[in-house]
Amino acid sequence: MTRALDLHLPIGSHARRLNRLIDHIETHLGDDLCLDKLAELAAFSPFHLHRLFRAWTGETLRDFVRRRRLETAGNRLRYDRELSIGELAHSCGFASAETFARAFRQHFGQTPSSWRQQGGPGASVLPTALVMAPGAVTLRRLPGRDLLYWRQQGSYAEVADPLWARFQPWIAALGLAGQPLLGMGLDDPAVTPAEHCRYDACVELPPAWQESAGLRPCRKHLAGGWHACLAFEGEASALGGAWTWLTTHWLPHSGFMAGSSPFFEAYEAGAGRGQGGQLRAALCMPVQPLAR
């Protein structure tokens, strides 16, 4: 069993600034992400940011940046086969393809080229009971949206349901109970160790929604665009297999590659996710056409 870290700190804490910093890191992996620059961005002293980040996430900021660069590269090797390894290394913040290859092999135990050829870990692992009907995936152009969210770190199987159990009464108290809900696994558990996986329970905000006085929740914007959407109905324990089918069985033959924005589960307005039982959701993966 892994240790779950609750990354939604109480109102009035540093949660909003730290989550915003992490979101910045995720979208700027190719930039200079030294401690001093990140501390300035988050409005902390470097010493305070170092201590707070380690206490909050269980790893140092430097280790987090290095790990996310390598894990992001690992996923892009699987889903973006048109990008050369040298281009990928540079986009993920490595000075050269040689530096990247050395770090990648040290972290994952194999070279980037062999990882790409094999499709990464778990590429052929699919529960035998999972059968997808023809036409189960539809392409939809989804709008951008603003979200409130709570985040928790740990194995998705252990943290998701308890997080939703706490999150849904909170959003009901804000008058948002009828709004669409999204579950967002920010990390691929085939690549990221379970104890470092991050899960966001999200509610879509209506237009012109204003925060109440004194309320400073974690808030973010989810970019719109084309998504491959798989209709899912079943036990929560089968979600992982459905995502595996979508990414490793449907995607390679689709004429698309995965986009860079987060994958997410979209629940019907007001339906949400309870403790265990059957779930109905659309599994939404951002996509873009392969270059011809």
Rank of each mutant, 00 (worst) to 15 (best):
P127Q: 07
H24F: 13
F108L: 13
S254W: 10
Q168F: 07
P46H: 07
F94Q: 12
M1D: 06
G255Y: 13
F167M: 08
R67T: 04
L9D: 07
R105E: 14
E233A: 04
H24I: 04
G183C: 10
F104M: 13
V191H: 03
M1I: 11
D6N: 14
L222P: 01
Y79F: 15
A271I: 13
L130Q: 01
E233P: 00
T60Y: 12
L7N: 03
P252K: 14
V203Q: 02
V65M: 13
E40K: 15
G276R: 15
L186G: 00
S260P: 00
R81K: 12
D188Q: 10
S13C: 10
E71Q: 14
A223L: 09
E204K: 03
L38K: 14
C197M: 08
D32R: 14
T128I: 05
D161F: 11
A160I: 14
S260I: 05
C202Y: 02
L251K: 11
C202W: 04
W243C: 03
R17N: 06
W150L: 03
W56L: 12
S254Y: 08
S124M: 07
H196G: 01
A194Y: 06
M132D: 03
P127F: 09
D6H: 15
G74L: 12
L70S: 05
E233M: 08
T244Q: 15
A97W: 10
T244D: 11
H8K: 15
Q168G: 01
G276W: 12
Q168T: 14
G135E: 03
M1N: 04
F108S: 08
E26V: 01
R20C: 08
L148M: 08
P169C: 14
R102W: 13
T111N: 03
S237K: 13
D188P: 03
H48R: 15
C284L: 09
R273Q: 09
Q153L: 11
V287S: 00
H221E: 09
E40R: 15
A160W: 02
Y156L: 09
F104A: 11
A228V: 01
A177P: 07
